[in-house]
Structures are given as structure tokens and as C-alpha cells.
Amino acid sequence: MQDMTLGTLIAVFEEMFGRWLFWGLVAVALVVTAAYLYVLIRDRAMSMHKFLWAQIAMPFGAVAAVAFVLRITRSGLRDIGGPIDVITLLGVAAMGAVGIAVLVYTAQSLARPLVRRPKT
């Protein structure tokens, strides 16, 4: 690979997904992240109840992300050939897990805002 710059990477991703889908996905990721930060700042607390549901969703997100990548690339776990493959696969799983956790937490917080009990 020659001249691996951010510009090159973005150009490649634009070609991979199509310009609108790529920037649409970037926008969705930014909106979800922004919403997550918003509920954290708004509530000034993590709800352990909501976080529990987010954690329960994590393995599902991890498996779904790996299954999605394997499916679109017509490959299977038997094709994992070396350490870099394992690292890549774990990276995909981690992104799926974190992504779904943020999404689940944010969705719950937006649907059911934290109710603070009045101080007695």
C-alpha cells in the first residue's frame, strides 16, 4: 500500500459502501455516541440497571458482528489462519459488543429517563 493516509482510507471506505451509505453510517455512529454522552451528562450517573441490560446485550453484539463479517466475506471460522486473524476477529467482536452496549444503554435512557428520588 502506497501513501496510506486518512484521505486514502476515507476514499477507500467511500468506494466500499458508496459515498452516501458511508457518511450515513458515520453520521449514525456520531448521533448514537452524541446521544450516549447526552444521557450521561443529563443524568450525571450511570444507571446500573440499564448498564446490566447493556452488558447482557454485549455477547449478542459480538457474535452478530462476527457472523456478519464472516457472511459478507464468504468465510468461516476454519479460515482463521494466524495471530493477526484472531486479533482481527476479536476486534470485530469487541466493536460489535461495545456498539450494541452503547446503543442499548442509550435507547433505554432516552425511553425511560432516570428518575431521581427526592431527598428526604
Binding site: V12, E14, E15, T73, R74, S75, G81, D85
Partner: peptide, 23 residues
Amino acid sequence: APLEELWISWLMKEVALKATYNA
């Protein structure tokens, strides 16, 4: 590794190569 049969190298051919070509 260039001489190792890897899934990530397949991934590049499957997913990233055409996009790089188009770019």
C-alpha cells in the same frame, strides 16, 4: 505475514481491493 495463508488477506481481496482500485 506475506507467505502465510491468512483470513485477513482474503478479507482484503474480498472487501477492500475493489474499493482501493476504484479510489
